[in-house]
Design a protein around this nucleic acid. Structure first.
Lengths: 344, 344
DNA sequence: TTGAAAGCGCTAACAA
DNA sequence: TTGTTAGCGCTTTCAA
C-alpha cells in the first residue's frame, strides 16, 4: 500500500494539514518543517493520491483532447501527432494530464465527451476539429464548460475561443506566389467544404486571383474528401479540362502528395508541367520529390497555444482567439512561367 | 452543482447505498426500486463522480499510453494515430479512458509515467516503443504494475506481456518475394539497430537470403535513423556501390517514400531500376507512386489487442504474448527480373 | 432486499 | 505557523 498523508504526518510528528501545506507549497509554513516533511516524503516514496485530491478540490488538473472521427482516414494525417505533441508539451509544463478521445463516429465522440465532463474527469476540452452543427460544441457551450477549438468555429459570434492561423492571408500569399511566378491558370484543391479551413483557404485563393484580375473557372475549384484517393479524382478531372491549370493550390500536404503521384501517373511532371503549392508543412512535405513549397502553419504551436488558452479559461481568465503566424517554406514544387526568371 | 448520489437517494426515498447498488447494477436489489431510482437519475441528469468512486475503490478505469520520445520525427509516423485508434476502440468498448503521455525525452516520459502510476491515475500502461535499458520498463516491472508493450521487449525472458507481429517471418516472406522475382542483389534499410523491429526484420531478411544461398555484402545492410533525411544517405551510399542492389527491403513505409524520392532524384526509377518492398501499410503506401508492396501489419489490431491484454492483466488474468498476423499487400513497387515473368 | 455508518486520502475553514 | 475537524461523493461491511 502506498503511504498516505497521515503516515507522513505521523512520522514527521506534524498534522496532516501541515503535510498538505508542504505538498501545495503553501507560504504559511516554516522552512524548517517544510524540509523535515519533504525529507520524510522522499524517504517513504510518498506521492499524493490524485483521486483524493481531485475529490477534495473538485477539479482534476487534466484536459480532454477530442480527435476527429477516427473512422476517417484523415486521422492518419501527421498533423495529429504533431498537435498532440504541442498540447502535451505545455500540459506537462503546467502539470496537467491529457485525456484523449478517439471516438469512431460523432455519437461515440459525444458519449466520450459526456463521460469526461460529467464524470469530472477533465477540467476542460480541446477540440481538434470543427464541424457544422456539432453536438459537442453545443453541449459544451450550454454547460458553460471550458473548451477551445484548434481551427475555427463556424460561427465566431458565439464567442468560442479558438486557435487558428490566418488562413485567408496565408492562402492569399501562397496564391500570389504562383501568380508572381507567371501562372494564370491556377486551380484549387481543398477538403470538404464544410470545414472552415477549406473555406478560408478558398477565400484567400479567390481574393488573390481577383486582386490580380485573373478569373477562375468553376471547374478549377475542387473540394475533395481529405486523403480520399489522394485527390486522384480531383486531379483527373482538372487535367482533362480543355485548358488545364499550370498551377495548383492544395490545402493539405498529404493530399498534395497524392496529387503529385496522380500527376506522375498521368504522365505529368511537377514542377515542370504543373506547379504545386500546399499547406501545413508536415515532415513528409520536406522529403517529397520535389520538396513541397508549403505554408508552415506551425502545428506544434497551434497545439501549445490552444492548451495555454484552455488553461487560462479554466482559471476563468478572459481569453481571446489566437492567431498563430504562418510562414511560407519555398521549396521546389513550383516553376516560373515568366521568361526572365526561373526559380527551378 | 451536479447532483450527487445523496440527492438521488433523497428524492427516491431510498438510502445512498441503494442508489450505489443501482449504479453498479447489483443483483441484490429489486427490479422495482431499480427502475424507480434509474428514472430519478435520468430526471436529474445524474452522473457518478469518478474521482469519488476511484477513491473509494482505489482504481480508475483508465489506462496510460506512452508515446515514443516526441522530440523524434518518428512521432509524425501515421503509425501512431492508427494504434491510438485501435487502443481507443477497445478502451471505449470496455469503458476505459485513455491517458496519453507525449514526453519529450526519456526523462520527461519517466516523470509522466511516475505521475500516472503514483498518482493513481491509471490502472495500467501501454508502451508504444521499446528501448534498450529502459527506465520505465524497469520501473513498471519493479512496481509490478500492469503494462504491455506494443512491439517486443528486448529480453523476453523477463516475461513481459507484449503484442507484436511475427516480424521475422514477415520479413522472410517479403524478401522471398523479391527473390522469387529474380533479384539477387538485395539490400536492407532498417531503423536504429537497438529496436527489436529492426533486429527481427533484419533477421528475417538474412534468413531468407541464406535459404536461397545468396550472400549479402555488409554494405547492403543499412540502419538509418527513422525518417532522417528520408533514408537519403542510406540510399546514396547503396547506389554508389560498385554493384548496387536491384531490390530493397525497407522496414518502414515512410522511410520507403524517402528512399523512392531519393532514388528519383538520383535518376533511378522504381520499380524499373530498383524494386522496393516495405513494412506497415500505412495509408500513404497506397497512394504512393508506385503504390508500395508492403506488409500489412494490422496496426489497428496491434493497438486493440494490446488494450485487451492490458485489461486482462489489470484484472489479474494470466496473459500470453500475442502475435498479430500480417499479410503482404502486393502492389507495384517491384519488378520481375526473370525473363518469362513480369509483374509490372 | 435495504439501510446505517465508516472510510477511501486529501483539502481548507477555523481555531489556537 | 500549526492543528483540529468536517467534508468532498462514493463504496462496502455489517446489521436489520
Amino acid at each position: 500500500m502506498a503511504p498516505t498523508i497521515k503516515e507522513v504526518a505521523k512520522i514527521a510528528q506534524v498534522s496532516p494539514s501541515t503535510v498538505s501545506r508542504v505538498i501545495s507549497n503553501s507560504p504559511r509554513i516554516s522552512p524548517k518543517t517544510k524540509m523535515k516533511v519533504k525529507k520524510i516524503m522522499d524517504d517513504l516514496g510518498y506521492h499524493p493520491n490524485v483521486n483524493a485530491r481531485n475529490l477534495a478540490v473538485n477539479s482534476t488538473y487534466s484536459i480532454g483532447v477530442v480527435m476527429p472521427s477516427s473512422t476517417d482516414k484523415a486521422l492518419q494525417n501527421p498533423f495529429f501527432p504533431e498537435v498532440l505533441r504541442g498540447i502535451g508539451s505545455v500540459a506537462r509544463e503546467l502539470d496537467y494530464s491529457l485525456y484523449v478521445s478517439t471516438g469512431g463516429n460523432p455519437e461515440e465522440q459525444f458519449e466520450e465527451v459526456k463521460r469526461m465532463v460529467f464524470g469530472n474527469r477533465v477540467d476542460g476540452v480541446i477540440l481538434l476539429y470543427s464541424r457544422v452543427n456539432d453536438a459537442i460544441t453545443k453541449f459544451l457551450l450550454e454547460k458553460n464548460f471550458p473548451f477551445v477549438i484548434v481551427g475555427k468555429p463556424l460561427h465566431t459570434f458565439e464567442d468560442i475561443t479558438y486557435v487558428d492561423n490566418d488562413n485567408i492571408k496565408a492562402s492569399k500569399e501562397l496564391t500570389q506566389h504562383l501568380i508572381d511566378l507567371g501562372h494564370k491558370n491556377i486551380g484549387f484543391i481543398g477538403g470538404p467544404a464544410e470545414q472552415m479551413v477549406t473555406a478560408d483557404r478558398l477565400k484567400g485563393f479567390e481574393l488573390s486571383m481577383k486582386n490580380s484580375k485573373i478569373s477562375v473557372p468553376d471547374e478549377y475549384k475542387i473540394q475533395t474528401e481529405f486523403l480520399e484517393y489522394g485527390g486522384r479524382k480531383a486531379v483527373e478531372r482538372l487535367i482533362s479540362l480543355e485548358d488545364p491549370p499550370t498551377g495548383l493550390v492544395v490545402t493539405d500536404d498529404i493530399v498534395s502528395l497524392g496529387v503529385m503521384n496522380t500527376l506522375n501517373d498521368l504522365g505529368f511532371s511537377v514542377p515542370k508541367d504543373v506547379s504545386i503549392v500546399s499547406f501545413n508543412n508536415v515532415y513528409l512535405a520536406e522529403i517529397a520529390t520535389p520538396p513541397l513549397t508549403t505554408v508552415d502553419i506551425n502545428i506544434f504551436k497551434l497545439g501549445a497555444k490552444a492548451t495555454n488558452s484552455l488553461i487560462n479559461k479554466i482559471n476563468s481568465k478572459s481569453v481571446e482567439p489566437i492567431i498563430i503566424p504562418h510562414k511560407i517554406k519555398y521549396r521546389n514544387s513550383t516553376k516560373s512561367l515568366s521568361l526572365r526568371r526561373n526559380d527551378n
